[in-house]
Design a binder for these strands. Structure first.
Lengths: 141, 141
DNA sequence: ATACTAGGTTGATTTTTTGAACTTAGTAGC
DNA sequence: GCTACTAAGTTCAAAAAATCAACCTAGTAT
């Protein structure tokens, strides 16, 4: 049985899906357009075939990835993200931005296409129609 | 030797620090105000003492956590986040928001204090002074 | 006919994590 | 002064997970 976190917390429950070693990086590879088994493997120096195979199956079970057969014989699959997989974009970006600020050796930054300047994360309240700072994390009903 | 990802990618390098099992949850416990060993342990149902002890040491080495002795005899430490630890807030929030949308059982939501409505993540370009959608992740120089 | 690639599977070895017991030093109750 | 209890760990065996290397099948290229 897969070890999971048994905690009433969005973060723990989300990590039960994407928190295993390599998993988030695999989703990210697909996110940036590496769609076949060997493209993903090439992108992730050091991952073993069996682990990649297991993780892709688990991600598909969890609904973040969908695979489609693009050749019958031999079977060849293309892996794509579902909407929930694509919605990890903000998670990727928040991690990239943290790394931009705090990693000794930083590789990536996120820029606004139009002006090429770097962007920050903010929070937007669509009810008030404005960016807001004062937030609370609260229980749902 | 600790297994690390050897990839030129902010996400992989950041996960080398916070990607091990339990680590991000430990930082989160401290973030929400559980500052002693036993408070953190109580907050994380299922974690073992030795692992918590190891992780706290590694987080301190990595500069995300600072411990201060609040009693000499017996030694008692309070764990606090450094600035880089606190800066994981956006990572926590992006995961909470993903969970809000995609977890079967969701526990938390993030609201704007003033109006109690839920917020979204957006990206702000301080050069253009506006929220922006069109972003690119690019190599740093 | 031989080599090479894609997309895996199998099984042994190594590394991590878990779980339980133990330790040290202090406080609280009687 | 004795017993129980708590905090903050450490130690060590057992279980689980990841790595590594070899193998497999079916095609393509030379």
């Amino acid at each position: 049985m897969k070890a999971t976190y048994d905690l009433p917390c969005n973060i723990a429950q989300t990590l039960n899906i994407i928190g295993d070693r390599w998993t988030l990086l695999i989703v990210h590879e697909i996110f940036i357009g590496n769609n076949t088994f060997s493209e993903i493997k090439r992108g992730l120096n050091g991952i073993s075939s069996n682990l990649l195979s297991d993780r892709l199956k688990y991600l598909e079970e969890s609904g973040l990835v969908a695979s489609s057969l693009y050749s019958d014989h031999p079977p060849r699959y293309a892996y794509n993200l579902t909407d929930s997989g694509k919605d990890l974009e903000d998670v990727f970006n928040s991690i990239i931005l943290w790394g931009r600020q705090h990693l000794d050796k930083c590789y990536k930054k996120i820029i606004h296409d139009k002006c090429n300047h770097e962007v920050d994360i903010t929070y937007y309240c669509s009810y008030c129609n404005e960016n807001v700072d004062e937030l609370s994390v609260v229980e749902v009903d």
